[in-house]
Design a protein around this nucleic acid. Structure first.
Lengths: 145, 145
DNA sequence: GCCATAAAGACAATATATTGACAATATCGC
DNA sequence: GCGATATTGTCAATATATTGTCTTTATGGC
């Protein structure tokens, strides 16, 4: 059982855990001035990146967490006036979660720190490598579903 | 600011969050019979994969979390007889965290489910792609440090 | 060796996430 | 349409993680 891919894979998994933690810490540091926590900017980011519109369980699937955890944070964010539950034409019970006007302003501010950060982090990385990685990550996700 | 790499990167970050969650869920399902939780098998995995030996803050760095969170779980695992704090020749105060005899047995059982899983998940993925991804992930980690 | 700076353990407060369970409602194959 | 199955919202208990703070000790440059 000395498959080199086995070790490579387990190493990758561990390294992904680490990157995950660092990304969250980085995001929190970056958004400190905006009154956001990672639980919040993750939700905002997921909504913003989705073209179709997302329900609470949909956000949970995209973020890889339990729908209950997402429900909790979206409820708070709706109460805070950042998000709005809007009617879902495709599902009578499960509302679409959208950005309120204030939420959009917050997202604009988020983009102002996030965009330069994203560009800074990728300027010396070939597009091709980013694509390969994204493809592989998606492939792994498909296996785990 | 229509850098395609920007969108690619943000998409990657979100996708990594998702994979992270799925990996944890998968690991928990896989280790259910061993009485392990993800907080525990992550620590065991980190120790096992490190050749040098790790301290509590060292494990925290590898896993990308706070040293306090790791301290908490290692304290519990030492109390449970899975881990042992052993003297650290390189640092007088910060003990090395090692597997007890029972911890090693647990690790053996862990390997028995983990190895087939790792092989199964990579059998149709070229080694080269795994290496590219691991390299890119490491590169991002370095930037975020 | 000395000293400024960094690292580590410890404790507490709080935030976030998982898990399990239940009722209500959608969805989809037929 | 109908009915089995899956999904969703909700509530509660618990586990896990972050953050802030303080004290104690290492570490590394001089």
């Amino acid at each position: 059982m000395h498959s080199p891919k086995r070790v490579l894979f387990l190493d990758l998994v561990l390294t992904l855990f680490r990157l995950n933690g660092l990304l969250i810490a980085e995001g929190d540091a970056m958004t400190k001035g905006l009154g956001l926590t990672h639980a919040r900017w993750k939700v905002i980011g997921a909504i913003a990146l989705s073209s179709a519109g997302l329900t609470v369980p949909g956000i949970a699937r995209v973020l890889g967490q339990s729908r209950q955890a997402v429900q909790r944070i979206t409820d708070v964010m709706v109460a805070d006036g950042i998000l709005v539950y809007t009617e879902n034409p495709k599902h009578k019970r499960s509302a679409l979660v959208t950005l309120s006007e204030r939420g959009q302003e917050t997202y604009t501010l988020l983009r102002e720190v996030q965009d330069p950060w994203a560009i800074r982090n990728t300027e010396d990385i070939p597009t091709e490598e980013l694509e390969t990685t994204l493809r592989l990550v998606r492939r792994l996700i498909k296996k785990l579903n």
